[in-house]
């Protein structure tokens, strides 16, 4: 998911490097913990009657909803107010940005 992270941290606003980095890390993490199956492909510990694998995927969805909401809040700090112009960093940056 390197492509998303580099886009994220470079595109909208270079003026908020920390916030951008946090957004990038959250996005990569939230995808990673869903896609990296060895992490949760186990039958135990059972939660109630649910094998861990199924419990994990179900409980992970509200977690993602919350993380998405946090990302959203952070992004609102990055994006310019409605109708306003944006910095020059928004698009058409250098080569290789998305190539990886």
């Amino acid at each position: 998911m390197a492509q998303e992270s580099s886009i994220k941290s470079r595109s909208p606003i270079a003026a908020h490097p920390v916030t951008s980095a946090v957004i990038a890390i959250l996005t990569v993490a939230v995808v990673f913990f869903a896609v990296y199956v060895p992490l949760y492909a186990r039958a135990t510990p059972k939660v109630g009657d649910f094998p861990f694998f199924y419990f994990y995927l179900l409980i992970y969805m509200p977690v993602v909803a919350i993380v998405c909401w946090i990302i959203l809040m952070l992004r609102n700090r990055l994006d310019p107010p409605a109708g306003g112009p944006d910095g020059p960093a928004a698009a058409s940056t250098g080569p290789g940005e998305v190539a990886k």
């Binding site: 939230v30 995808v31 869903a34 995927l57 179900l58 969805m61």
Partner: peptide
């Protein structure tokens, strides 16, 4: 079972954080 069917659950989880990057 899981691989051909339940992957859909995993995929609908991650589609939103990814879409949040480019849809706006």
């Amino acid at each position: 079972g899981a691989v051909t069917g339940f992957f859909a659950v995993s995929y609908t989880i991650i589609v939103f954080p990814i879409a949040l990057i480019f849809l706006p």
